[in-house]
Amino acid sequence: MNVDYGHRPQQWSHDLCNCGENMSTCCITWCLPCITFGQIAEIVDEGRNSCLCHGVVYGLLMTIQCQWVYSCTYRKRLRQKFGLLEEPCGDCCVHYCCQPCALCQEHAELKSRGFDPSKGWIGSTTTAPQVPPSMTK
């Protein structure tokens, strides 16, 4: 689902290296990245699969150290939904080199757009989130 905003791609609302802005997300992501990833993936997936399902798959992939392949696909989907730039480099490169920072940035991006990843897709917000035409809520 590519979003055509009719103009240049948008900037991320948070920089990749600003993962310390929200200390609770930062700590959870550094210790248990499968939780943060699961929350992000559930929102990006529009609730088709649960946070738990995504988190378990991510955790299993961590055992063979290839979870970054799974998470980079969700970064790409998130970027496409909101028309975000692929920066500072390719999605897979970002997740391979800076996995925790990438997850914190994606989590912060969803929050800045009105979603609450910790509440999942159904309860993600009490107000209408900033949803592109490709997403429904």
Score class of each variant (00 low, 15 high):
17 C>V: 00
52 L>H: 06
27 C>M: 09
25 T>I: 15
54 H>R: 06
63 T>H: 03
52 L>C: 10
44 V>R: 01
35 I>F: 14
8 R>Q: 15
34 C>G: 00
24 S>Y: 06
52 L>D: 00
68 W>T: 01
52 L>Y: 05
31 C>K: 13
10 Q>A: 14
16 L>F: 08
20 G>L: 11
47 G>E: 09
47 G>R: 01
12 W>C: 03
9 P>Y: 08
29 T>W: 03
23 M>S: 12
25 T>K: 04
42 E>L: 04
35 I>A: 03
45 D>G: 02
17 C>I: 00
19 C>R: 12
10 Q>P: 01
37 F>M: 10
9 P>V: 02
13 S>I: 03
55 G>Q: 11
49 N>T: 01
40 I>C: 06
29 T>I: 04
42 E>H: 07
55 G>S: 11
49 N>Q: 10
25 T>W: 05
31 C>N: 10
51 C>S: 15
68 W>A: 01
39 Q>R: 15
60 L>M: 10
53 C>R: 09
36 T>F: 12
38 G>T: 03
15 D>Y: 06
31 C>I: 12
15 D>F: 09
54 H>M: 08
18 N>M: 12
20 G>D: 07
63 T>V: 05
51 C>L: 10
10 Q>L: 14
62 M>K: 08
27 C>G: 03
28 I>L: 15
60 L>N: 00
15 D>H: 07
32 L>A: 12
66 C>A: 02
12 W>I: 02
40 I>R: 01
10 Q>H: 13
19 C>Q: 13
39 Q>M: 14
29 T>A: 08
20 G>F: 10
25 T>D: 04
18 N>L: 09
42 E>P: 00
67 Q>R: 02
14 H>S: 14
15 D>G: 15
59 G>C: 15
43 I>P: 00
24 S>Q: 12
67 Q>A: 13
54 H>Q: 04
63 T>F: 09
21 E>V: 15
24 S>C: 05
9 P>G: 02
19 C>M: 14
33 P>N: 06
12 W>E: 04
24 S>K: 12
35 I>C: 09
47 G>P: 09
61 L>T: 03
11 Q>D: 15
13 S>R: 15
32 L>H: 04
62 M>T: 09
61 L>G: 00
10 Q>Y: 13
13 S>D: 05
33 P>V: 14
41 A>C: 09
13 S>G: 13
42 E>A: 13
28 I>D: 01
59 G>V: 01
6 G>P: 02
51 C>E: 09
